[in-house]
């Protein structure tokens, strides 16, 4: 573990990512200190470009974009991490069990996965939000529901391949328990794939949220980056900064998450560096 930590901190891009991510977390934490009150409040003239009266300018109703971005960091991080966490736990459990045990369990679990996966995911998320309503908890739920199947399939594929490896076969013939084989021998070997996919999944969750917001399906009482982009979209060509500011925020966050993911990947799988 210590080695892994050292490998991680030696990985420069990963450190950069971590620093960025920490900055986003801090932004989320200090939002209400820096900008007390409602981020939806109208504070100035609309359509002011950045670096005028307001550091990041104002949007079409004259709301301070800097305040919106700070508050948005909260919502966006919450949605990204919460949805991914739920989806990963569900996906790894279902995919792992299916891939490891195969046979009837596999058929059943994969049927379940297929069920959720054949439904066009974005459309299904829209359907869920349309039916359940667009409060933030329901949006997280909807994103998690549509996000886990790819993880399950990926983990299943890895487990299936792993199940037939010599060392697993050896463990089985030695009479080792299934739980132990899965947790100690197979899971660590699939971790890199899970981490890589998981890191992209956070990003995907953030992007799904922005897609839903773009279609007007966000929580109207909560400020999020997706919401700012969605509302600024129609003025993309006349007031570029309204989309660009939260867009860059999403970009940096997604990039940071990915770099950290890569760093973890390399750190947890030292053999990968030998190519």
């Amino acid at each position: 573990m210590r080695d892994a930590f050292l490998r991680f901190v030696r990985h420069k891009p990963a450190l950069v990512g971590l620093v960025l991510l920490v900055m986003v977390v801090i932004a989320a934490a200090v939002a209400s200190l820096l900008y007390p009150g409602d981020p939806f409040r109208i504070v100035g003239k609309p359509f002011q470009p950045p670096l005028t009266d307001f550091p990041l300018g104002t949007d079409m109703l004259g709301r301070d974009l800097a305040a919106a971005v700070f508050y948005g960091a909260r919502t966006t991080l919450l949605i990204g991490f919460a949805a991914t966490l739920i989806a990963t736990v569900v996906g790894v459990t279902i995919g792992g069990l299916a891939g490891y045990f195969g046979g009837r369990a596999d058929a059943l679990l994969m049927r379940l996965t297929e069920l959720f996966q054949t439904i066009p995911f974005f459309l299904f998320a829209i359907l869920l939000v349309a039916v359940l309503g667009s409060s933030i908890g329901k949006i997280i739920f909807a994103i998690a529901v549509v996000s886990w199947p790819p993880m399950a399939r990926l983990v299943r594929g890895e487990f299936m391949a792993m199940r037939n490896r010599e060392f697993v076969q050896a463990c089985v013939s030695m009479g080792m328990g299934h739980a132990r084989i899965i947790v100690v021998h197979i899971l660590p070997n699939t971790l890199s794939a899970i981490v890589v996919t998981g890191s992209l999944m956070i990003a995907t969750a953030i992007l799904i949220e922005s897609g839903l917001s773009f279609l007007g399906l966000s929580d109207p009482n909560v400020m999020s980056w997706g919401y700012i982009i969605g509302s600024g979209r129609s003025v993309l060509r006349t007031a570029w900064w309204i989309c660009a500011v939260p867009g860059v925020a999403i970009l940096l966050t997604v990039m940071a998450i990915n770099l950290v993911g890569d760093g973890l990947n390399d750190a947890l799988n030292p053999r990968l560096r030998q190519l």
Binding site: L61, G216, L217, G230, S231
Partner: peptide, 29 residues
């Protein structure tokens, strides 16, 4: 639910109502 103007209009009304002591929660369906 007929477009983004209405939503922005709703956000504006929410802010104006706050000035006269009416707390409005927005609902979008």
């Amino acid at each position: 639910p007929y477009g983004e103007e209405w939503r922005r209009f709703g956000e504006y009304v929410q802010q104006q109502l706050a000035k006269i002591g009416i707390k409005a929660t927005l609902r979008y369906e």
